[in-house]
Amino acid sequence: MRTIVTATGFQITNYGALALAAWQGRQAEVDRLVRATTSEAVSRGEGVGLTVSDWASAVLCNGLGRYEDARAAAERVVSDPPAPGVAVHWGPAEMVEAAVRSGDGESASRALERLVRTTQANPTDWALGTEARSRALLSQGRDAESLYREAIERLGRTLCRADLGRAHLVYGEWLRRERRRIDAREQLRTAHDLFVAAGMEAFAERAARELRATGETARKRSAESSGDDLTPREAQIARLASEGLTNPEIGSRLFVSPRTVEYHLHKVFAKTGVTSRGALATFLYGGGRKLESK
């Protein structure tokens, strides 16, 4: 980017760095980049820069659990006229979550309406999964649970690990509030593992707080972990298999097919050298694995 700026004399705003810092929960860096982006955007009359800054602030604050601040930032995004870029389209999703958590159901509903205009115009699994997650936040009972599961199923078919993690997180939060602590732990563990793997520290800590509220402590990665360690999904499936669940039962719990479970178990066996389900418990809980399973 510096080479381009030097060669052309045209200043390029580093929106990517701002988005990355927001997803990773780096407050000081986001503050610095927002100031720089806002200054550059104002000097060039580039309104999209302000929109991106507000969207990044909303993502950051939702991760940190500062929902009133997230709502205020997202409100500015959804109040702006349509502008190019992803931020203006996904700003409503941040608004739904922040407004619901702030007790502002009316604003959340308006944001959902705006989000639907985007998702229905481009009905990919990513778009519809994000819509389902947002609808779930505004729903109750069986309707909410069905939507959370739809969100996880759709986002699980994409490469959008951050959004998948957030779907598991809000589902786990909902389950905990429904007093279904055991079910909540499974979702929150998955969310935490996805966030840690992605370097999303603020969201990971939010998931860890929720886990602690269920009476469980989130596992920590060992500094000695190698590339041969199990992935979060492999560890999750290995743990369930070690508890005696069948492939169809694991698939039903994780919203994946039995064939997908079999694929991951094959990789678990190859990585660990374990040759049977019965030996998995010894490996996972007996010190054979470098990363603790729970």
Rank of each mutant, 00 (worst) to 15 (best):
A198D: 14
W55L: 02
A218M: 08
A162H: 10
E153N: 04
E178W: 09
E292Y: 04
Q187M: 10
R176C: 02
R176N: 01
D104W: 00
L147T: 02
G63I: 07
G156S: 06
L18C: 07
V170P: 00
G199C: 07
P258D: 09
M1A: 12
V52A: 06
G65M: 11
L18A: 04
E97G: 01
P232G: 07
R2D: 14
F283M: 12
S225P: 00
E173M: 12
A70F: 00
Y148C: 06
G9C: 08
V34D: 05
V196W: 03
T217E: 15
T217Q: 08
A223C: 02
F255W: 10
R66H: 11
E178G: 01
A93Y: 02
R26E: 11
V96Y: 11
G16F: 11
L169D: 03
D183A: 15
R289H: 15
G288R: 12
G85A: 12
R44F: 04
P248R: 07
L291D: 09
V88I: 15
L115G: 04
G227R: 13
F269P: 03
Q140M: 03
L175I: 08
S146W: 01
S102Y: 10
V42L: 15
R161Y: 10
S107Y: 00
R117A: 11
A56T: 02
E106N: 03
S139K: 09
P248T: 00
G103V: 01
W23D: 06
A132P: 09
A208N: 13
K290N: 11
E113T: 10
G172N: 03
T13N: 04
S134V: 02
A218D: 09
Y15A: 05
R177C: 05
N14H: 13
L137F: 02
A218R: 05
R161F: 05
E46K: 02
V5T: 13
T275G: 07
A56S: 15
A184W: 01
A36E: 15
S109A: 15
G165Y: 10
T260W: 09
R179W: 07
A74K: 06
A21L: 01
A208F: 10
